[in-house]
Simulated scan of single mutants.
Amino acid sequence: MATILLVEDDPSARAGLEFALTRLGHSVTARETGELGLEQVRAQRPEIVILDVMLPGIDGVEVCRRIRAEDSLPVILLTARSDDIDVVVGLEAGADDYIVKPVEPRVLDARLRAVLRRVERAPGDRSTHGDLVIDRGTMKVRRAGQDVHLTATELRLLLELSRHPGQVLTRQQLLASVWEHDFLGDSRLVDATVQRVRSKIEDVPSRPKYIETVRGFGYRFVAS
């Protein structure tokens, strides 16, 4: 069971998802605006936030951005549109996943459980690559002696890439291992998360030395 904050302005959609997720065993708090959602996050931190993108006032992308400025709390965006710009903006704001509405509650349940599994501890192991230290035991990353604050998804992606140094992992392999998507998923999830990780661990993100792009295939972690 997870404690979920659902932020959805449509009353029928909000009531339907709240009822369905509760029936599936979760504890759900529902709010109808981004402002109320942010207040709830700060008052009683949930395990995961499910955000509608098209909210009145502060929209879901901005709510995600504000959460991400303070916390690594997992966030899933619900969007009625699958336009590239909407999806990319949401992912760049720090969302862990996104789902196009309407969504079947059991599908949403499976996706949120997959996101939450990313925070589980991995077997103990520590590796050093130049000034980058990846500690799987404590699930922490340090760069030049300073903690690097990664979301659960960003950390899971870095762990997966660094677990196979020098090996090219395709976007579909990463979708399966990090996001647990067992279908031909959306590679934008991978690309946007790679960009966010690079912005935090690379000296010059546009000229990465740790996570290389292998055009036409995917990404490779370069161990030093």
Rank of each mutant, 00 (worst) to 15 (best):
R14W: 14
E18S: 15
E18T: 15
F19D: 14
F19P: 01
F19H: 09
A20P: 07
L21Y: 15
R23P: 12
L24N: 03
G25S: 10
G25C: 12
S27Q: 14
R31Q: 00
E32S: 12
G34F: 05
G34V: 00
E35P: 10
L38G: 15
E39Q: 11
E39V: 06
Q40A: 14
Q40C: 14
V41T: 06
A43D: 14
A43K: 12
E47A: 13
I48T: 13
V49R: 08
I50A: 12
L51K: 03
V53W: 07
M54S: 04
P56Y: 04
G57H: 05
G57N: 06
G57E: 06
I58G: 05
D59W: 05
D59E: 04
E62K: 09
V63A: 05
I67V: 08
R68F: 09
R68Q: 11
A69R: 06
E70W: 08
D71K: 02
S72K: 11
V75C: 02
V75E: 00
I76F: 04
L77Q: 13
L78E: 04
T79V: 09
A80L: 13
S82H: 04
D84Y: 12
I85S: 05
D86E: 13
L91I: 09
G94F: 05
G94L: 00
V100W: 12
V100P: 08
P102N: 13
V103L: 09
P105H: 10
R106D: 12
V107G: 10
V107L: 09
A110P: 01
A110T: 07
